[in-house]
Simulated assay, not measured.
Amino acid sequence: MAIWLVVTSLNWVDPLFLPSPIAVWAAFLEILRDGYKGSSLAFHIYQSMYRLLVALLLAIVTAVPLGMLSGVSSKVRAALDPWIEFYRPLPPLAYYTLLVIWLGIENASKIALLFLAAFAPLFIAVISGVQRIPQDRINGARSLGASNWQIFIYVVFPSCLPELFTGLRTAIGVTYSTLVAAEMVAAVSGIGWMVLDASKFLRSDVIFVGIIIMGIIAVLIDACIRWVQHSQIPWIGHDS
């Protein structure tokens, strides 16, 4: 912040390329007061978070059970793994155009894109967590009379929670960056769209406002995930 303030105060860089912190703060207050292009700042943030959270919830309710099944069943893994490994390395924007053609430019195509971005890392993390469960733990539960369903719910699922949260944090990072790209390609609302629209008019102060807001939101989301992780699975990092 100090370097930024000094550089802009001494006009070492054209304000078009690097606006001053004061200009960025003024742009933030302006958007907070008047909104941007007819919509409030809260509405743009809400649109981005709605797309993100819906896609993440869909990924969690599908990737977690499918990952657990794939971890315990080689047949399920053989059926799903080739498809996931095929699309996982692809840049999201490469197939986003198809999703826009199929689902339109509204939220459906964006949520589908974000879902695909979140599904793969979460699915792989859950499989890794299941495969690392000691066989003695499962055998011990079975010897006490636990059924396969009880083992699945009370042994397999809690045991893979550390990897699940790690995969969730990775999925959020990938999904968040994909969200910005999706809003920059086809959208009329959202923080990513606001940044792209401001770039068309060389409003670098608004661009900085959008980038800072996106960064702060990303930090807050990750902090919430880490808080839940530490509160619900405190045994992470301990041998016992």
Rank of each mutant, 00 (worst) to 15 (best):
S199H: 08
V185R: 09
L202W: 14
S204I: 14
L164I: 12
A223W: 13
V188K: 15
M184W: 12
L164M: 12
V188C: 06
A171W: 10
T178R: 06
T170F: 02
V219L: 12
I221C: 00
T178N: 07
F208L: 11
V174W: 10
A187S: 15
V185N: 05
L164V: 13
V219Y: 15
I221H: 00
G173Q: 11
S189H: 08
V206D: 06
I213K: 00
A181I: 11
D205R: 12
W227V: 14
R203T: 12
T178G: 05
I213G: 00
M184C: 06
V174C: 08
V188D: 15
F165E: 00
S177R: 11
A171I: 11
V195T: 13
F208M: 14
R226I: 14
V206T: 14
A198L: 12
V206Q: 07
D197H: 13
L179R: 01
L164C: 05
T175S: 11
M184E: 08
S204Q: 12
I172D: 06
T170M: 12
C224V: 15
D222Y: 11
I212C: 09
L179P: 06
E183G: 07
Y176K: 02
M194P: 05
I207R: 10
G190C: 05
V195S: 04
I216C: 05
A218R: 05
G192S: 03
W227A: 15
D197I: 11
A171G: 13
R169D: 07
T166N: 10
G210M: 05
I217D: 01
G215K: 00
T175R: 01
D222P: 00
I172H: 09
A186K: 07
D205V: 07
I211L: 14
T170H: 04
G173D: 07
